[in-house]
Simulated assay, not measured.
Amino acid sequence: MMKIRDVQTIFLAKHLYVRVTTDNGLEGIGECGTWGFLEASAGAVEVFREYLIGKDPLKIEYHWQYLYQSFCFRGAAIVGALGAIDIALWDIAGKYYGVPVYRLLGGGDRCRDKLRAYCHVKSPSIEEHIRLIQEAKKKGFTAVGHLNPYLDPPKGEVAPVKPYAKRVSEAIEHVRQFREVAGNDMDLCLEIHRRLDMAEAVALARGVEEFHPFFFEDPLMPDNIDTMGILAGKIPIAIATGERFISIQDFAMLFVRNGAQFARVSVCAIGGLTPSKKIASMAEAFGIRVVPHNPGNLSPISTAACVQFAASIQNFAIQEIPADDGEGLKAEMVQTDVRVENGYVMIPDSPGIGASLRNGVADHPKYAYAVRKAKATVLDDGSCGNR
């Protein structure tokens, strides 16, 4: 029987990876998605490591349940650790059987030949938003996302307190400009970053309805799931949410409250591929489509895991691709078989998740870990703004 020989945490740049190795030489890689608390997640991995050494890596569901139920405590740092381990174990399973992970997740084969994608458009200026939309169109994308009608300033900078009417009217005007440059050949995925209260969310949603956004992402804070259900009943456009959820029960509560039309499942933050597949099945029963969350804070390891997940589910909608996913340090650190061509993700057929860390990067000073500092959006009246 194959056994786990070691479980390692690897900090690189602003990322935390978990590498699992077996006694027959197979190796799996996973990434932690709770990027604000990577040090805490690494501590959880070390606790889980003691249990995993010597175990059969193919007992993925059993190990997930054992580790999740081994203590009384839950939380983002814990499921982030579980997610990185889970993805690494699925990577090993794919390599052991010589197949891409999507073949093991259910159904025996992928549900589509390629994945429609949207790329990030992010800037504090409307002019840069317009330029980036035009650039995405030239690359063949039929959707753009991370479009923030409020043009958030960088975190840590002071943001002005604006009158309600001005805030809402300016945001609506920005969406009008997005649509004008995109035309009807591109979908607009609006990203609100949890910054609104109920009244403003309703006003903005009704104001942008005529521009037919694909979805309205995270208009409210995620802490009270009831409020998203109430909002969904008041507005004429589709809500996408869930990227900050940390359990399948969070999604179940959202679905029964009719709080979303798109489930933003964050594979690396929800606990890995094992719970992600369960969430997608629940969503399908409710007629809800899945948009795997793949933020710019993560690397191509996350993208590869999302692609395997997306390929295995019928109710997939669109895949988020950060603008720098294959560039700079990320490309230097990660070898990936995932390719984006003319606005679509090509699904790799290589065994496992189709991505790995490049040789030698773990010991190279160029990729030394950079600790993230706590930064919140501060308004010019001295208060903290929603983010």
Score class of each variant (00 low, 15 high):
residue 85 I to E: 03
residue 108 G to Y: 08
residue 329 L to I: 10
residue 43 G to E: 07
residue 164 Y to R: 12
residue 301 I to G: 02
residue 115 L to G: 10
residue 187 D to I: 03
residue 239 I to C: 08
residue 295 P to A: 12
residue 111 C to M: 14
residue 203 A to S: 13
residue 73 F to D: 13
residue 377 T to V: 10
residue 287 G to A: 08
residue 89 L to C: 02
residue 237 I to A: 07
residue 180 E to I: 00
residue 196 L to Y: 01
residue 85 I to R: 02
residue 21 T to L: 03
residue 100 P to I: 04
residue 289 R to E: 14
residue 209 E to A: 14
residue 28 G to D: 01
residue 135 E to W: 02
residue 15 H to R: 11
residue 287 G to L: 09
residue 123 S to L: 08
residue 154 P to H: 12
residue 349 D to N: 06
residue 89 L to S: 04
residue 16 L to R: 04
residue 354 G to D: 03
residue 153 P to L: 15
residue 220 L to V: 14
residue 101 V to Y: 05
residue 213 P to I: 15
residue 270 I to H: 03
residue 341 E to D: 11
residue 292 P to R: 15
residue 13 A to R: 06
residue 371 V to R: 15
residue 238 A to L: 14
residue 146 H to D: 15
residue 181 V to R: 00
residue 258 N to T: 07
residue 18 V to H: 00
residue 288 I to T: 10
residue 9 T to R: 08
residue 258 N to A: 13
residue 263 A to G: 11
residue 299 S to M: 07
residue 132 L to K: 02
residue 380 D to M: 04
residue 243 E to G: 05
residue 106 G to F: 03
residue 46 E to P: 10
residue 8 Q to S: 13
residue 1 M to D: 09
residue 299 S to H: 05
residue 88 A to F: 08
residue 160 P to D: 03
residue 84 A to K: 04
residue 305 A to R: 09
residue 133 I to D: 00
residue 253 M to Y: 04
residue 171 A to I: 09
residue 316 F to S: 09
residue 86 D to Q: 06
residue 207 G to H: 04
residue 103 R to F: 00
residue 289 R to S: 14
residue 183 G to R: 12
residue 59 K to E: 13
residue 336 T to Y: 03
residue 311 A to G: 07
residue 226 D to P: 01
residue 99 V to M: 06
residue 179 R to P: 07
residue 332 E to L: 04
residue 241 T to S: 13
residue 131 R to K: 10
residue 308 Q to A: 01
residue 342 N to H: 12
residue 9 T to V: 15
residue 52 L to H: 07
residue 157 E to S: 15
residue 266 S to W: 04
residue 39 E to L: 15
residue 221 M to A: 12
residue 253 M to V: 08
residue 94 G to C: 06
residue 59 K to F: 01
residue 309 F to G: 08
residue 35 W to P: 03
residue 84 A to V: 02
residue 364 H to R: 13
residue 94 G to Y: 02
residue 300 P to H: 11
residue 70 S to C: 06
residue 113 D to W: 05
residue 371 V to Q: 14
residue 66 Y to Q: 00
residue 123 S to Y: 03
